[in-house]
Design a binder for these strands. Structure first.
Lengths: 160, 160
DNA sequence: ATGGGTTAATTTGATATCAATATAGAATGA
DNA sequence: TCATTCTATATTGATATCAAATTAACCCAT
């Protein structure tokens, strides 16, 4: 008869398996995912407010800046560059398309492919946003003089 | 009569004020907001998949780990700690409350205040998640051996 | 005490995020 | 040719995110 709970096992309704407080602190102090989410939220709020007057979000700014060069990326390529799910990008470009800040042009060779292209209005809006970005980013650097933005950005680019 | 556009100004419908390609590259390579959003998305996806089998997101994990200590923070304090808007947290705890992973208890002294407290089921789920986190984070560190997770997490904690 | 300002939390409306699924076009091979 | 498979994008449903507005409770000065 060994069906019963052994005498030295915890009773069925005992305190759940506990996590040592040291482990909790380890996660709090070292988890790169947690740290990245927090930093991303703070910075997103900050730049969303910065661009509020010109009706842009930080993500829309980044997306549109990515389109300022000569190449017209496929949506999939753009999603990869932004480290974004293609579904997320699909929704994002739709919003900008609705505002006529970019257009989605069908590819000549492949009927499945769509390429994102800024309109003149889109380029003009980026041109308006860039000085705001430059001033805010300088302020950010001034607040954390020990940080080398280029080095930290590169580090984060290799993360995940 | 100086109302007309001066002869050397660009015509009204000219190419919009262009942003030099160097500036575009500067933003791409140095913008801490952009870099943080990208890293946050990659890491969020990674840890969301890790916790998928136990039906947790990375954010729910971080939130619940924050409640593993003895203190029972107000929602506002918790939002600050997570660098999250209060409204976001309000929605987040509601989801966890619906699943009986935490409860919101009214404060004794102040009728406005609610404090988040993990249930036994909540603590048990965190206990199940922690080994997954530990293994995945070790893998992450192995992929980027040059990164000191604690130092980078600290750096990001001061960001924004 | 009570009216006015402050604070804690919630609600609302818009966008963001991703997994899963669907659709449509392309490429391959029998 | 045409069926299978693969690929690019879109759609759906759930959660996440924040600003703005709202509700409720507190505090304080009169």
């Amino acid at each position: 008869m060994n069906n019963a709970t052994p005498p030295d096992a915890p009773p069925p309704d005992a305190t759940p398996p506990s996590v040592p407080i040291e482990t909790v602190h380890e996660i709090r102090d070292q988890c790169l995912c947690f740290a990245a989410q927090r930093a991303a939220r703070r910075l997103a709020r900050r730049f969303d407010r910065l661009f509020q007057d010109i009706d842009l979000t930080n993500g829309q700014f980044s997306l549109m800046v990515s389109l300022m060069g000569k190449i017209q990326p496929r949506l999939g390529e753009l999603a990869d560059f932004l480290a974004m799910d293609q579904a997320t990008l699909s929704a994002g470009v739709k919003t900008l398309e609705r505002r006529s800040l970019l257009t989605l042009v069908a590819d000549d060779d492949d009927g499945r492919v769509r390429r994102a292209v800024l309109t003149s209005a889109g380029r003009a809006l980026v041109a308006k946003a860039v000085p705001l970005w430059r001033a805010e980013h300088a302020k950010l650097q001034a607040e954390q003089p020990q940080i080398d933005a280029r080095a930290l950005a590169l580090l984060m680019a290799g993360l995940g």
